[in-house]
Amino acid sequence: MVDMGSRGSACRIKKCAFDLLSMSDMSDDEDSWDLMGRDLRLKSTFLYCDFNQMISSAPNDQKKTLTDLANRLFYYIEELGHAVKIRSVPLTQNRYKDAAVVLQEVMATMP
């Protein structure tokens, strides 16, 4: 039963990664920018908490790998969030492509 927390975190990480990967279609109106920004902030909060749980309960040999993956993911999410904040479609698309690569890796890594 001790592993239930880690399995729940892994499941939420995969769900958040899937949700973020599915937001590739965006329009250039005021509501879409606001919705995308709020969704990024919400998902990154869940991801942060769940990655923290996963890293702290992971065996020592996996902690560095998970930490590096989480750091790269949060870097790209932050870059994407900045692009959304300044409402630049080309920059957002570029940052989204970068984040999508790491999100795919997260999906493949989670049990």
Score class of each variant (00 low, 15 high):
Met1Ala: 15
Met4Ala: 12
Ser6Glu: 14
Arg7Glu: 12
Arg7Met: 06
Ala10Ile: 02
Ile13Phe: 04
Ile13Ser: 01
Phe18Asn: 06
Leu21His: 08
Leu21Pro: 03
Ser24Ile: 10
Ser27Pro: 12
Asp29Ala: 02
Asp29His: 06
Asp34Trp: 13
Arg38Thr: 14
Asp39Thr: 10
Leu40Pro: 03
Arg41Cys: 08
Arg41Pro: 01
Leu42Asn: 05
Lys43Gln: 05
Ser44Gly: 00
Thr45Tyr: 02
Cys49Pro: 06
Asn52Asp: 14
Asn52Cys: 10
Ile55Phe: 01
Ser56Ile: 15
Ala58Asp: 05
Ala58Asn: 08
Asn60Val: 10
Lys63Arg: 13
Lys63His: 04
Leu66Arg: 01
Leu66Asp: 05
Thr67Asn: 11
Leu69Met: 02
Ala70His: 11
Asn71Gln: 13
Asn71Arg: 11
Arg72Ser: 11
Leu73Pro: 00
Phe74Val: 11
Phe74Pro: 04
Tyr75Ser: 04
Ile77Pro: 00
Glu79Val: 15
Glu79Phe: 11
Leu80His: 01
His82Arg: 15
Ala83Gly: 03
Lys85Glu: 09
Ile86Tyr: 15
Ile86Leu: 11
Arg87Ile: 12
Ser88Thr: 02
Val89Arg: 08
Leu91Pro: 15
Thr92Ile: 07
Lys97Cys: 12
Asp98Ala: 13
Asp98Val: 02
Val101Ile: 14
Val101Phe: 07
Val102Glu: 00
Val102Tyr: 10
Val106Ser: 03
Pro111Leu: 04
Pro111Ser: 02
